[in-house]
Write a protein that binds this DNA or RNA. Sequence first.
DNA 1: ATAATATATGAATAGCAATTCAAATGAATG
DNA 2: CATTCATTTGAATTGCTATTCATATATTAT
Lengths: 116, 116
Amino acid sequence: MKHSHEKEREVIERLPRDEVLAHLGDFFSVIGDSTRIKILFSLSDSELCVGAICEILNMEQSAISHQLKVLKNADLIRCRREGRTVIYSLSDGHVEEILRSAYEHISEEATKHGTR
Amino acid sequence: MKHSHEKEREVIERLPRDEVLAHLGDFFSVIGDSTRIKILFSLSDSELCVGAICEILNMEQSAISHQLKVLKNADLIRCRREGRTVIYSLSDGHVEEILRSAYEHISEEATKHGTR
DNA sequence: ATAATATATGAATAGCAATTCAAATGAATG
DNA sequence: CATTCATTTGAATTGCTATTCATATATTAT
């Protein structure tokens, strides 16, 4: 008798709106890149200018600049100009919180599987 | 006088190990896809067989199966076979927690920017 | 105004990843 | 055991995205 589709309909109804899910996907894909993750962790330590970030990540300035733009468009970081340098910082504590939360998740997984 | 590189060195030292950062990036990129997000949210409601997920997302079975594999490889979901159907469920509460946390983040951003 | 420093931008390339298509596997059923 | 149902798999395709290269903009100093 195949199945009733009732359960499916209920699940669909409880699902967040497509727009929200898309936003969520965007958000995670922005932080789902090792370069950007490094930038975020670096900034969680202290605000930094572009040049400093390049040194820390050991990457070309252009690449960093492009990724900073992605992070900025996602409102995860902000910047202010100071003379000819531009200083970036995290835009709020929420991002850090999510990073830490996932960081713990990863660590737990690691210890569980002995991947240490 | 350029700058001292001291700050940079300190930041580098405090950074989690590359391996951990890579793991984190992987983790977020896995959930940084709207299809997989939908699957995860659906499963947070109740365990589901593949066919049901296809109906809920209105996508081809093969595509779903491929994505389920990705989620499984990342240990975000697990499955058990029951007759000829395979039933998927979230592997632990941690994932849900991170999803909810980000969900709130997104919601706050939305209200802040009036994007509602 | 010119040069030097710091950052941003646009176009091109190259690598990856999501979906589709076709076929394979696994389990139940006549 | 042949058939049907549920799911998986591999290969091909197509679209996306990170990085590079070259160039542009902005700020300060000479």
